[in-house]
Design a protein around this nucleic acid. Structure first.
Lengths: 181, 181
DNA sequence: GGCGCATTGCACACCGGTGTGCAACCATGA
DNA sequence: TCATGGTTGCACACCGGTGTGCAATGCGCC
């Protein structure tokens, strides 16, 4: 589908998207009158998927560090779909995308802040920045071609937990546990 | 200068670069016959600057974690110049840039691996991936508009050290120390 | 068969950015 | 004063990608 292509390379041409969808350029315009529309639709979809996962994995009662671990575990296999978001933040759409991402980023920041208050996460960076850094680190790792394949989920989770200031011993347990599920 | 503009927005038009340099579009073509040439020249320069810093801050004898901290401390104030590299890795130039970045990334990976062998860094990820993740995290943080201003260098250093698996207590000391210099 | 609907193929206008050619225009300095 | 060399301001060709119009072609379904 379209999301597969634009997910990995959001600057793909309409023609590429089309042929990836097994269809002709002209046809795409039937569904999305404009390239922008396509991108926005895609972003909107990605955002809502992510928000769903986040809501499900990080309910209010759950410990913040556990919630984070679970969230990353679910996020990991889908990173290639969501790359759109990361790339799109910079660039023409900056404003519009930021608006869409707004509440996801907010939820993430809230989660981190909760963790900071409970002492589970460190306070070396303000919650907003820290959450941002930790979650895009996951995408960075995913980008590394070498990693993609042979890499264990729990290693990725572990890395992000470490960034968040979770002590190594606990981080290891959480990562192991969330990675297994 | 040109690097200031393209550093932050590598997809800037020739006109923008020109006016940023206080000159007219036509003039730029006098120096760089092609947009590509400009980008490559810029990238080359950024790479060599970075390589220099790295070589200076991470001599063979130095402890890997100290070296890393010092390196990030020096890198931080220049992140906006080097953004070119990060952005350029994906996109048209992928191959060419990768070649340029090759030895820097290698040095970084070597440093991390040295740290892993000495036990200073964790082994949760292969050295190549880990170094990549840790150093682009710095750029990610730098991108966050909020952060840019009020953010303390040592906080950034600390974060990257944590990613690398340095225990919190030691990471704090190193970050504090490197951040002060 | 005949209707409807989505898809296709092609042609074309349009747009923005790149790169070039050329003449005019200052400077600086001999 | 004149020459030189970098800069400027157009004008223009070119290119690739977007978006549209329209006729032709399927293909399923009644």
């Amino acid at each position: 589908m379209a999301i597969e292509v634009l997910g990995t390379t959001p600057d793909a041409r309409m023609g590429d998207v089309a042929s990836a969808a097994g269809v002709v350029r002209r046809t795409v315009y039937g569904y999305f009158p404009t390239r922008s529309d396509l991108l926005v639709a895609l972003a909107r979809r990605a955002v809502s998927e992510i928000a769903a996962v986040l809501a499900e994995d990080a309910p209010v009662g759950k410990a913040a560090d556990v919630a984070w671990a679970d969230f990353i575990a679910r996020l990991w296999p889908m990173t290639h779909r969501y790359r759109v978001l990361v790339v799109l933040r910079r660039g023409e759409f900056g404003e519009g995308i930021h608006a869409l991402l707004g509440d996801v980023e907010q939820s993430l920041a809230d989660l981190v802040e909760r963790g900071q208050r409970s002492g589970a996460f460190g306070r070396h960076l303000p919650a907003g920045v820290l959450s941002q850094a930790a979650w895009s680190a996951v995408f960075t790792i995913a980008d590394d071609e070498l990693s993609r394949m042979e890499l264990d989920v729990s290693a990725v989770i572990l890395t992000s937990l470490l960034m968040l200031g979770v002590p190594e011993s606990r981080a290891k347990v959480l990562a192991e546990q969330a990675g297994r599920a």
